[in-house]
Amino acid sequence: MLRNQKGQAIIELAVLGSLVIMAFSIVIGLSESYNRRQSYMQQTFRATLYKAKAANESGGVSAMDFRRMPNVTNPMEVGAFQSFSSGNNLIWADGRDYAKEAKQYFLHGRSYYDPIPVTYSGVAPDSVSTSVSSYNATLDSHSRYDKNEHANNIGTTKSLGATGSASGKATVGSIDVTTGGSLSSGGLYYGDEGDEFLRNTTNTRKWYE
């Protein structure tokens, strides 16, 4: 009788515990996602401000970013893939008529501005329209657990290594732009080929007689 009750308690705890952890992971993932989205939008707006100032006219910047979100339920696994697209168009001019020319760009990996001819924009003059048409992500991950027992201590090491790439196609005006990169530290896809996402934990326990 008592053994059955214990078994039921353990099953209930396992079911309820995993549900609670899942609810936690949803809440944490949502808040992380909102934060990342706002951060990317603000960064793109600041980049647009610089470009509009340099053009002394209207400037447009579009960007598409990929990243792996944190995995709350299992920190030693790579999290879910998410894409963020952002774009702005603004005028920042001093009103004089020298060197003014509307510009628009696509920002690759937060580092390289790809000029997009304004005249090819099929939406409206000097406007930017970004839509994520498609993306493709690959992932190859391996984890390792080592346990070393010595006379008076136990050492454990966990490691996670992952390689992957993401490639996406965005439409800016009437031009199709392809962007992406390799998975690198922090879950970002800004790396070059051969980069790796790494995570390690080490733990040593000692006891003394």
């Binding site: 610089y50 002394n56 001093d94 004089r96 020298y98 060197a99």
Partner: peptide, 10 residues
């Protein structure tokens, strides 16, 4: 961030 270093010129 958007202020010109030298106003009135490119």
């Amino acid at each position: 961030a958007g202020k010109k270093v030298s106003p009135g010129s490119p």
